[in-house]
Design a protein around this nucleic acid. Sequence first.
DNA 1: CGTGCCGGGAT
DNA 2: ATCCCGGCACG
Length: 534
Amino acid sequence: MHTRRLVKRSILGSRVYAPSPTGDRTPLTGVVKAVKQQENRDVSTGPWRNVYTVLMQDGSLKELAEDEITVGFNQTTAKGPLRSSLKQSSCNCRMDGAPLHSQTMEAQKGEANSLSPETVKGEREADGRRMGRPLDGQERERARSVSLLEQKLKVVSSSIDVPHARKSEEEVDMEKVTAAMVLTSLSTSPLVRSPPVKVSEGLNGSWKDSGGGFTPSSYSSSGYWSWSGPSDQSNPSTPSPPLSADSFKLFRMPSINGPPPDDTIDEQDGSSLLFDEPIPRKRKNSMKVMFKCLWKNCGKVLSSAAGIQRHVRTVHLGRNCDSDCSDGEEDFYYSEIKLNTDSVADGLSSLSPVSPSVLSPVPPPHDRHRRPPAEGSKGSSGNKENHSHAHSNTTPLSRSAPSALYLIHTDHAYQATSPVTIPSTGSGSDSGPDSAASNSFTLSSSANFSISWQSPPVTFTGTAASPTHGRTQSFGEQRPQTIAVLSSPPRATGSLSRKSRGEGKKCRKVYGMENRDMWCTACRWKKACQRFTD
DNA sequence: CGTGCCGGGAT
DNA sequence: ATCCCGGCACG
């Protein structure tokens, strides 16, 4: 299955050459946007033939039979694996009997000027060459490709999602692409992994201008979500590279093929192929990344970027087309948030029942990685810049939006009315076993959440699970009172999750550690004793 | 600090 | 599902 997808993908978005209508010798290049099978009258090439819908370099769409085009190089995905899959696909064409083969070779020959049309072997050589052996004129080609890329950026309408790799020099492409993949994955799904990437030197292309900002230094490569305090700059725990907006948008993997909901993940495996570093399974500190719709009165939270994009696109922007015709505007309307517990997700939703107006936009001190492009027109006021304190970072994805940051509405009425049910420890009276069990969420992360500049709503002091974090806490401690006031709702004083400690005899007491095997299983498992219930 | 047990990982 | 354990709240 995996393979199949790879193959499919690799053909879509592939760059191909088509004979120039004007009869020029130089072929036109285009990108495969779709493939379909058609009956083929020419028996010699088999009963079927593929017809490709190709987006030509001049912006037009053409349908070309497979024998009319030449597969060029391609695409914006992973390196090695992709390459092979690509090749595989072109192989398939060949096996179909199409004369594609020779043409392909010819094209390569013409362009790379030195390939003997020698079948697979020759191709392999070519491959090796592409892989980066220094070549004469490589510099020149590189430069050329870069400018081509730029040129293309200008030409190709922003509303057309095309793999932005049109230049002809594969090696350069792949380097850029690799980098792009890295950046993309870093910025879109930090949770999954933050590969300690070594940015290839090919990066110094023009698109990367982030003031040398991108330093993939030592992220927590373990998937462990660092709790690093806000001001703790020594710990770049949040993979939110100050990508230049343009580059980010550019490589946002527009989804060539209609994005499955798990798109994010998808891309991930792409990169995991590249960086298959073992991901030590660690306790993840129960951090989760969610994507929250910032549209007024929406507040939908989804777990995948693709999902939220689609949500925004369809529900709020009223676009029905699939992400192919997305211009990326959705990005403006959702934000990535990090939670440290599922229950928190819910709890959070109620955190800021405050009306948007309350959260007036405090001018963000500095504009950190944000995405400028369309920004201007959008009167970006509600800038949710959670700088310093909110270590829950802001990825390039998140920025000004219809409503203020973390303004979270809920679907649940009860939540809407009561801002927060902060289980301040203590005052336990009704300790219903299950009652708001999940409410005992550990707030530390939530704290990080809103505290930053819109201090009011919530501050938590609860001896929450904020693991060893002095700095972060200090803030909370400064204003315990706020809590009392703000977390108003007559919090059932004791709706504590933890049922108050059972007082009766427990297996442990009764049998002692020595006879642990005599304990009830629950006790053995450190669960609530079942034998001597209270 | 000992204990109960929740939450969550491992298998 | 079962087993195990880190860690926290309670006392």
